[in-house]
Structures are given as structure tokens and as C-alpha cells.
């Protein structure tokens, strides 16, 4: 294992110190491992918090700032944060208009956020609404599993619901916007290589040089199938067609198309993939209204990518275009 670390045990804390040093506009609560918008709580604005296991950076801490999240909780690598962290984050961002919890659909994350909401309700009476993100079409038999996983749509939810909150809309409406994004977004991912969790020191799974895993999860969970490595245009087809067969994308205002890097794939390959994806969409009569290309929800040093398509309408596009100022996503400011 070759990594830029001092000690796996201090990885999260060391990285949080780096975030604090690089982004003085953010506050970092090192004890609770919470990254908070510097001017939080913003009076009268719904607070947005998220969080999850570390290793998916820039998600979530890189999306803290005006127009997106108010706070993010960092768990151990690939392990949900604990309720104390979410309670601290909720308290830090409560501006009197309630707090939205954005939760990726993993058993641990859902239960820890649930407990946090119960603790907040018992202690302070802050109104909390949780929205669970589950956009991964790779999980087919959702009745007999923990359900679809939360992946790429999480980034879009944080941006779009963040813009709705910034407009001063009430908690119920901000939650509704978040649910709408989740309802109309689908994702599918692919791994060319495994990731290596620093504490484990070896690859999470074995993947031969000539094979790739289609339908991979962001923690290296197994996908739908393992196939020989293929040209990018065929890979794009493997990712886009299960999405299009899961949701009817025709008849709207086009899609927000998001090609995400898993951590170790260079941007030049992601742009090449984006080209393949747009060509497939054009063939299916689906216009691309907006785009996002880059490593935004990663899986440590995994090579590969995921595609997320969000069926857009006027409201979603307007909120997508709204100004945002965070370490990882910044425009219109």
C-alpha cells in the first residue's frame, strides 16, 4: 500500500486539519469531526447537514458553504458517523427554521441519523426532517436487500436543495425539493480497480487486470456483473442503458448529466466518457440541459466512473444554476 498518510489511525483528523487550513471560511469542530459553514447558523434559513463515512471526498465536507450544505459529519473511512456528530452539526446550523438531514441509503447511516434526530427532538426541539437518497440502479432486488444505495444523486441533492434553502424556503419545501431530485435521478457505476482502505492495507476486492466490475458501489460493494475490459463507448452503454430502462427520461426539459470519477481516473477519461454519454442520450432523444464532470463522490483510490442522470424541469434547472461557494463546487460568486 502506497499512500500519503502518517498513520491510518490519524488519517481523518489529519485531513480535517488540512481542510481547516486550506479553507478558513469554514469552521472545523475537530472533537466532533464536523465541518461547518463559517457564518452558521444563518438566521431564518433551513440548515442542511449531511455526512457519512470518509473516503468519498469531496463529498460531503467539500460541499459546505453558501448555496449548499451548512455542515458535514466525517465518519471513519467507509463507516457511518455516530449520532453525537450529527447532533453537534444540527445544533451548529440551527438558524430557527429547522434542519434537513441528507442521508445516503446505507443501513448504518440511516440508523445513526435516525438516532440523532430522536436525540435532537428529545433535547432541543429543533425540527428535523430526513431525506434518504437511493439512486443506484445497480441494486436490483431492492425488496430483499437494504435497498438501493445512495450515490451520485447525493451531490445533486446537496446542490439543488441547498439553493432552495438559500432562497429562504421553509423546511417542508426544501425537503420536497430534495425528494424530487432523488425521485428523478438514477446512477450506475463501474470499477476498473479496487480501492484500498488504509486501515486494511490491501485492496477491498480482487479484480484481474483484464476485468471490470459493472454496478460497483462506492465502498467497493459488488456490482451486477464482472466483464472483460471494454472500449469506453461500450462502457457508456453498460452504464446508461440500465438507467434509461429504470426511468422514462423523455418529455422533460432534458437532463442534468453527471459523469463522476471514482478517485483514480484522470479527468481526460471522464470527459471522453461524457462525450460517449451525450451521444447515447442524443440517440435516445434526450437533450443534456446541464453537465457536471469530475471526481465529486469518490471511493478512495478506485479507478472507474459513475453516471448520474437527473430528469430536469424549470425549477430544478433554476436551482442548479443558483450561486454556490464551496471548496469543491463554486460558481456565480
Amino acid at each position: 500500500m502506497k499512500k500519503l498518510i502518517n498513520d491510518p489511525a490519524t488519517l481523518i483528523q489529519d485531513a480535517l486539519h488540512g481542510i481547516a487550513a486550506a479553507h478558513p471560511q469554514l469552521r472545523v469542530d475537530f472533537e466532533n469531526r464536523v465541518i461547518v459553514r463559517g457564518d452558521a447558523p444563518v438566521r431564518g434559513k433551513v440548515g442542511l447537514i449531511s455526512g457519512g463515512g470518509s473516503g468519498h471526498e469531496p463529498l460531503h465536507g467539500g460541499f459546505v458553504g453558501p448555496g449548499m450544505l451548512d455542515a458535514a459529519c466525517a465518519g471513519e473511512v467507509f463507516t457511518s458517523p455516530v449520532p453525537d456528530q450529527m447532533v453537534a452539526a444540527t445544533q451548529a446550523v440551527d438558524g430557527g427554521a429547522g434542519v434537513l438531514h441528507i442521508v445516503k441509503n446505507y443501513t448504518g447511516d440511516v440508523m445513526n441519523f435516525e438516532l440523532a434526530a430522536e436525540m435532537v427532538a428529545a433535547d432541543q426541539g429543533t425540527e428535523v426532517v430526513a431525506v434518504v437518497i437511493d439512486d443506484d440502479v445497480a441494486v436490483q432486488d431492492s425488496l430483499y436487500t437494504a435497498g438501493r444505495r445512495g450515490v451520485g444523486a447525493t451531490v445533486l441533492v446537496e446542490k439543488i436543495a441547498g439553493a432552495a434553502a438559500e432562497e429562504g424556503r421553509p423546511l417542508a419545501e426544501v425537503a420536497e425539493v430534495a425528494r424530487k431530485v432523488n425521485t428523478y435521478a438514477r446512477s450506475m457505476g463501474l470499477a476498473l480497480t479496487s480501492c484500498t482502505v488504509p486501515a486494511a492495507g490491501r485492496p477491498t476486492f480482487e479484480l484481474p487486470d483484464d476485468q471490470m466490475e459493472v454496478g460497483i458501489g462506492i465502498h467497493g460493494e459488488p456490482g451486477r456483473r464482472r466483464v472483460p475490459v471494454a472500449p469506453a463507448n461500450e462502457i457508456a452503454e453498460m452504464l446508461v442503458s440500465p438507467i434509461l430502462s429504470d426511468l422514462d427520461y423523455t418529455g422533460g426539459d432534458g437532463v442534468i448529466a453527471f459523469v463522476n470519477g471514482m478517485g483514480a481516473t484522470p479527468l481526460i477519461e471522464l470527459y471522453l466518457m461524457f462525450n460517449e454519454v451525450t451521444q447515447l442520450l442524443a440517440k435516445n432523444g434526450i437533450p443534456v440541459a446541464r453537465s457536471l464532470v469530475g471526481p465529486y463522490i469518490t471511493s478512495l483510490d478506485m479507478a472507474g466512473c459513475s453516471v448520474t442522470l437527473l430528469k430536469a424541469d424549470d425549477e430544478l434547472l433554476r436551482l442548479w444554476d443558483a450561486p454556490v461557494n464551496t471548496p469543491a463546487l463554486r460558481r456565480g460568486v
Binding site: 463507516t79 455516530v82 449520532p83 453525537d84 448504518g108 445513526n112 438516532l115
Partner: peptide, 15 residues
């Protein structure tokens, strides 16, 4: 246990 375990076992044993 809720504060220290994390994952799914923390909330389950804790509860």
C-alpha cells in the same frame, strides 16, 4: 455504544 461504535452495530446494540 451509540457514541463509539458507529456503523449499524452501534445503533442496534445501543438501542
Amino acid at each position: 455504544l451509540i457514541s463509539k461504535v458507529g456503523g449499524a452495530s452501534g445503533p442496534l446494540y445501543g438501542t
